[in-house]
Structure formats: structure tokens, C-alpha cells
């Protein structure tokens, strides 16, 4: 496990931190999702207007993303997490290896978060499903966190979920 400042420059988004971990280690304990999301949320929220509440909100969203990678990832390779900031928005870039053929699933699930019926789909999912699907988790982020999601498949077989979270305005 390691955390370091990412020197990569992203237009208009300021890099805050980068974290990576061997997938085999990450997948060895479910609690990694909770621990990593709570710890990183505290780190990046310290200079927000209301650090405690921002951290709580951000941890909630980040944990869901990490749980998606936990449930859908494979043991070969690394999970990589980069967080950037632009104004009131944090950008999370989460890369993880997934089985062949899964990229299409994520492509469609991410696409659905941007469609006009995203909220209706989300309400339908929570009304009828016993357990959340990865698709409904991504819809949750779009509906409840006003997140904008997209997918980067350039590092196949790993995929990268790019999620913009405008939480500062919602917290303050």
C-alpha cells in the first residue's frame, strides 16, 4: 500500500493524491474499502469549508466505488486511485483489472447514469431489488451525489472509472 503526490497534470483539475495497492492484497479483506475511503476522505477534506461533513460525504461515495471494484475486480494487477480537485468538485479516477467482457458491462452502466431516466431506473432498482447491483450503485452516485461518471478503457484489461463529485456545494 502506498500514497504519494501524483505529479501528473490534469487540465484544470489539481492533483491531490494518488494511492495504489496490489489487487490481491486489496481483495483479501472487505474492510479495505471502508478503511481506505475513510482515511483518504479525511486527507482530502481537511481544507474544505466544513472538513468533517465533507469527509463523511466523500467517504460515502468513495466507499461505493471501492466496493464496485472489490466485487468486480480480479487479482492480477493493481488498483489505482487518484483524486483531483477543481473548485467545489473532486474527481476520483479509479482503475482496476476486471475480467474480459466486463468492460462492456461498465460502459453500459456508466452510460445509463447520464441518461434522462437515471432517477427512474434508480428508484426502480431500490424499489424491487433485494441487493444492489453494480449498475444501481453507479446510479446512486449520479442521483444522490450529483456525480458525473465516465469510463476510460485505454489500459485494458483494466478499466478506469472517472467520477466527478461536486460535494462542496452540497455540504456547505
Amino acid at each position: 500500500m502506498g500514497a504519494s503526490v501524483n505529479e501528473t497534470t490534469e487540465t484544470a483539475f489539481e492533483p491531490l493524491l494518488q494511492f495504489d495497492m496490489e489487487m490481491e492484497i486489496f481483495l483479501s479483506d472487505w474492510q479495505h474499502c471502508d478503511h481506505v475511503s475513510s482515511y483518504l476522505a479525511r486527507m482530502i477534506s481537511h481544507n474544505r469549508t466544513d472538513p468533517v461533513r465533507h469527509s463523511n460525504f466523500f467517504s460515502s461515495a468513495l466507499n461505493e466505488l471501492l466496493e464496485v471494484s472489490f466485487r468486480g475486480g480480479t487479482t492480477d494487477g493493481k488498483i489505482g486511485l487518484s483524486i483531483y480537485r477543481q473548485g467545489g468538485t473532486e474527481r476520483v479516477q479509479l482503475s482496476f483489472p476486471c475480467p474480459p467482457g466486463q468492460a462492456r458491462f461498465y460502459r453500459e452502466a456508466v452510460s445509463k447514469t447520464r441518461e434522462s431516466d437515471a432517477q427512474a431506473r434508480y428508484l426502480d432498482a431500490i424499489s424491487n431489488d433485494l441487493a444492489p447491483s453494480r449498475e444501481s450503485v453507479l446510479l446512486d452516485l449520479a442521483v444522490n451525489y450529483d456525480a458525473r461518471l465516465r469510463l476510460d478503457e485505454r489500459e485494458a484489461p483494466a478499466i478506469t472509472l472517472i467520477v466527478d463529485l461536486p460535494l462542496e456545494g452540497m455540504v456547505s
Partner: peptide, 14 residues
């Protein structure tokens, strides 16, 4: 309730 993931949320609301 400080944190609740979707797994728990959906189970309780079910």
C-alpha cells in the same frame, strides 16, 4: 447513522 453502504441500505428499505 454515520455511514451505510448500498448493501445495507437496500436490505433495510426492502
Amino acid at each position: 447513522l454515520i455511514q451505510m453502504n448500498n448493501t445495507a441500505f437496500q436490505a433495510f428499505i426492502r
